[in-house]
Structures are given as C-alpha cells and as structure tokens.
Design a protein around this nucleic acid. Structure first.
Lengths: 153, 153
DNA sequence: TATTGTTATACTCTATAACTATA
DNA sequence: TATAGTTATAGAGTATAACAATA
C-alpha cells in the first residue's frame, strides 16, 4: 500500500516506484536504439568510446589524459589506447604539459573538430520515438530532466 | 524557418530541439550513473551483458540462442560466449531444441532465477537524481516515457 | 540449399599491476 | 615519495567469415 499522505516534495514509495518505472523505460529506449547508434558511429568510423572522448574535448582546449579518464569514468590506462586510436585517425593529438611535464594533454585536430560537430549532430539526435513526441511532451520531458539532472548539483 | 502554426500533435523543429535536449540529458544521467552500475554488477559478479541476458530470460521459459541475440541486438556468435559464462557461473543452462535439433535454448537455473531477481531489484533501481525527484515529476516522467516508448508501436 | 549455433580471427574496451619519467 | 602516463597482462564484448550439424 502506498502512503496515504504523499507530499509532493518528498521522495516516498510512490515516487520511488514511478522513478523506477521511468528508469526502466529509459533503458528500454536505450536498448532499442542500439542498432541506430551503431549504424551512425559505424558511418563515422568511430567506436562509442572514441565518440565520447570527442564529446569531452572542446576546440582549442587541451585536456589532460587524467581529466579525460575522470570525465569518462574509466581508468587512466584505458585512455591511452583510446587516444592512441584517435591520434591514429588524425582526430586528436597529444601535447606535452607546459608547467608539469608529466601530464600530456589531448587536443582536437581540425579534422577532429569537424568530426566532433558531425558526431554531435548525428549521434546526438534523439531516437525516433522521442523525435516523434508531441510538442508538449517534449517540452515537459526536457524540463523535468533538466530539473533532475542539471541545476541541483 | 519554423512553421508559424506548430500544432501540438506535430513534430516540428521546436519539438525536435526539446527532444534532442532531453536525449542529451538522458545521456548525461547515464554517464554519471556509470560508477554506480559498475559497483552493483561488480558485487553481483556479473558483466553488463550477462545481466542483460538474465533480464531477457524468464523462469521456466527456454529461449533460443538466436532469440536472445535478437533481443540484445548483437550477433549470434556473441551469445555463445555470454551464455558460456552464465553457464560457467551456474546461472543458466543450454538445452537442445525438441522440434528442431539445430536450436539450443537457454534456461535459468534456480540460482539464475534468484540472481535475476537480485539484478532487477538492485541494478533496476533508478539513479539518485531520479529517485530524489518530487512526486509530480516522477509521475509525469513515467507517463511521458510510457507514451513515447510503450504503447504506440 | 538454407539455417542454427559454434569456432577462428581480429579488434576495442576494461581493470590491475608494474614500470617510466617527472615532480 | 608521490603522481601522470604508459606498458603488460588477462579477460569480456564485438563483428565477420568459415564451419558443423541439422533441416
């Protein structure tokens, strides 16, 4: 039985159930969208992790390997390989740190900058189910997610 | 130029932008939640794909390898390895098909059934950001996603 | 001939641990 | 000593192609 007086600002069992269901639907959306993601990245010649690395690099801003590892929630030793492959593809370059010569920073090449834009445009597009939403749903969805994810950090 | 009369049931540019933003926020939620997922599955001794395979198996219902591959949107040859490891962990078993002896079906062991429940309970729990949502947001989120994902197939 | 699952192959991603070069 | 990045290692996931058994 749900609590009889669920106040709206409180995370009670009803909220937990709704949030759990919502999370399940998000997973379903993700799984269902897998082939589309694969096709897009395949055309761009990128792996998922390479695309994510591009997403964390801003044009003209060198990012230390360790910062990239932290942003991607993976081990330092992973980033070595991922950046190796970005470098081999001509999308990024390593440059030695200026103040501390232990750090190596990654920076986008011009080709990498173009590819990043393309990734954002294509791989960033929502799956058909979301793109087809009625306007009011799309607006509400964005607002709710922004409230949950964005500001209250 | 955007149409001057965007009706609500129509997917115009405004909807597309909102949907794109929402999709980006969902990705952010996913990435941010990666360490938590990792920790949970790690405690259960499962990989992501193994957990997903368990999610597609129902107690007492044998599922052909190829059906599992289709459900997980990956190649048949992948499933061989994933089921090998589930089998090695004592969570699932292969049984030969009855009508067509080419097919092999996967079925949960009793231990697999218990593990599946645990996976659903723990790995299915929403990330803190969603669990902390106000009730009205959680309900609205579920409803919008259900509309988008669930019924209109 | 066609299909189901496996095997062989090659590659990416993954963490851990050992190593290097700096600091 | 401590830290940043690499290398070594081992293992999981991935697709493709070739193969076996069965249809």
């Amino acid at each position: 039985m749900a609590t009889s007086t669920p106040r709206s600002a409180e995370a009670g069992p009803v909220t937990a159930d709704a949030a759990r269901d919502a999370w399940g639907l998000i997973w379903k959306l993700f799984l269902e969208d897998k082939p589309r993601r694969f096709a897009i990245l395949s055309e761009l010649g990128l792996s998922m992790q390479q695309a994510m690395a591009l997403g964390h690099l801003e044009p003209g801003t060198p990012v230390p390997m360790s910062a990239l590892a932290e942003a991607m929630h993976c081990d330092n030793s992973n980033i070595t390989g991922i950046v190796d492959r970005l470098e081999a593809a001509g999308l990024a370059e390593r440059r030695p740190g200026e103040r501390d010569r232990r750090v190596k920073a990654v920076i986008l090449t011009p080709k990498g900058e173009k590819t990043k834009v393309e990734v954002q445009r294509r791989a960033g597009s929502p799956p058909p189910r979301l793109a087809a939403m009625p306007l009011e749903d799309a607006l509400a969805l964005r607002e709710i997610l922004a409230r949950a994810v964005g500001l209250n950090r």
